[in-house]
Write a protein that binds this DNA or RNA. Structure first.
Length: 293
DNA sequence: ATAGTATCCCTAGTCAAAAG
DNA sequence: CTTTTGACTAGGGATACTAT
């Protein structure tokens, strides 16, 4: 079983076209045809169905392809690991984070890190919590910044910081000049929420549930800035962490009196999974950044 | 016994031609 | 038009051979 044949097989399986696959591999088309049929002979079963001039992966081929992909990925990861061990100041970190962290915290964090490790690049993915957890488990992401999670045995989560949540109302709202307020005073007013699936939405749902208030949700935004914009336009109130989306000329920010409202953000990684030196550097940097001051 | 050389055999490649 | 097959070649590893 030659390594090269697996590479050829993988390429052909991907494009399902001998001539094009051979071009991609920079060999002649007959060479590829030969290589594939000897691989099939070695395995003892055809991996492709030939129908006239077309060639398509059959179920044996598909089964085999999954394994071959894993083998190739392992190999490539091994190679990049070695490269990164030789050059620990280089490499790539795949970082996932919540939409609501994208305006301030993550850019600042990465800029500061970049000053120290200019050779390390990032692949950033903003997503919902459950999507991120899946990507984390599959290895697409090295690390995630998420609100606290439950019932995830594979995941190790470390708290980094807490953001106080404020009630925000339009600046011309009758209660806008107050410093703080009880949530129930606004119970009957329109609530501008984030869409379901957002971590902040889960948090606000929980706040309403524990204070036994049924919010009157009139709008659901996809971004904090949208929600803040709707509030500024006088369409209702919301609950958000402080941030630059909250324009003090248009929005008043009130402390919540009757309960402690905050969201907890932490770093998630898969337990016991090997982290590349670059990802490990970044992990250590984050922990130092938030926990040592 | 061993270093250096020759030979054999197999794989993987190419081009041309046949086959689908 | 695409794939397979035939005929041929180059290169590399293993083995056999030879001279020291």
């Amino acid at each position: 079983m030659e390594w090269q044949r697996l590479e050829y097989f993988q390429t052909l399986a991907k494009v399902q076209h001998m001539t094009r696959a051979a071009e991609i591999l920079s060999i002649s088309q007959p060479a590829l045809s030969r290589s594939i049929s000897s691989l099939e002979e070695e395995i003892g079963v055809p991996l492709f169905d030939r129908q006239g001039r077309s060639i398509i992966l059959n179920r044996y081929g598909l089964m085999f392809l999954h394994r071959v992909n894993r083998i190739m990925n392992e190999m490539n990861e091994g190679l990049t690991d070695i490269q990164q061990l030789i050059h620990p100041e280089q490499g790539e970190v795949a970082l996932g984070f919540l939409h609501t962290l994208g305006t301030n915290i993550v850019p600042n964090l990465i800029r500061t890190f970049h000053d120290e490790y200019p050779g390390i690049t990032f692949q950033l993915k903003q997503n919902h919590t459950h999507t991120q957890l899946n990507q984390l488990k599959s290895g697409e992401l090295d690390l995630c910044l998420l609100a606290s999670i439950e019932n995830e045995k594979m995941i190790e989560w470390t708290e980094l910081w807490r953001d106080e949540l404020f009630i925000i109302v339009p600046i011309d709202h009758p209660l806008a000049n107050r410093k703080s307020i009880q949530l129930r005073k606004l119970a009957n007013e329109s609530f501008i929420s984030l869409k379901k699936g957002y971590a902040l939405r889960v948090t606000t749902d929980e706040i309403f549930r524990s204070s036994e208030i049924e919010p009157v949700i009139t709008f659901e935004g996809e971004e904090v800035a949208t929600v803040a914009g709707f509030v500024a336009a006088g369409l209702g109130f919301s609950i958000l962490p402080d941030g630059e989306e909250i324009n003090p000329n248009k929005i008043a920010k009130l402390r919540i009196e009757d309960m402690k409202c905050e969201r907890v953000i932490g770093m998630a990684r898969v337990k016991n999974r090997y982290l590349s030196p670059a990802a490990n550097n970044f992990q250590q940097f984050i922990l130092d950044y938030f926990l040592k001051k």
